[in-house]
């Protein structure tokens, strides 16, 4: 039961990553693409968490911590590049 629900959750997260891809491709401005990248990287944290439960290994959470800490660094450097103050 629990596993079935989690599979549905993983499917929904993958669907949302796929929908975010549409925004990434359509874009319009660069900032839109950066937002799409940000959303993808945060959705991956949830994906890794569920994966850690499914495989029953706590060690996978370390990878998620590195994601959570460093995911925003790329966004900040892109923002500073765009406003020409890097």
């Amino acid at each position: 039961m629990v596993n079935t629900i989690l599979i549905v959750a993983v499917a929904i997260i993958l669907l949302s990553i796929g929908l975010t891809m549409i925004r990434f491709v359509k874009g319009k401005t660069s900032v839109d693409r950066v937002i799409a990248f940000d959303v993808m990287s945060i959705a991956s944290i949830a994906l890794i968490g569920i994966l850690a439960y499914v495989t029953q290994r706590i060690i996978y959470l370390d990878v998620a911590i590195v994601y959570g800490l460093l995911g925003f660094l790329a966004v900040i450097i892109i923002a500073k590049y765009l406003e020409k103050s890097l």
Binding site: I59, D62, V63, V66, L73, I76, S85
Partner: peptide, 24 residues
């Protein structure tokens, strides 16, 4: 746990670069 010298070093370098970005 997973990780080691290279990953830890990369994370520390990210901290340094965050400091450099915030205080040029």
């Amino acid at each position: 746990t997973p990780g080691g010298g290279f990953q830890g070093g990369a994370v520390i370098a990210s901290g340094v670069i965050l400091m450099l970005l915030a205080f040029p």
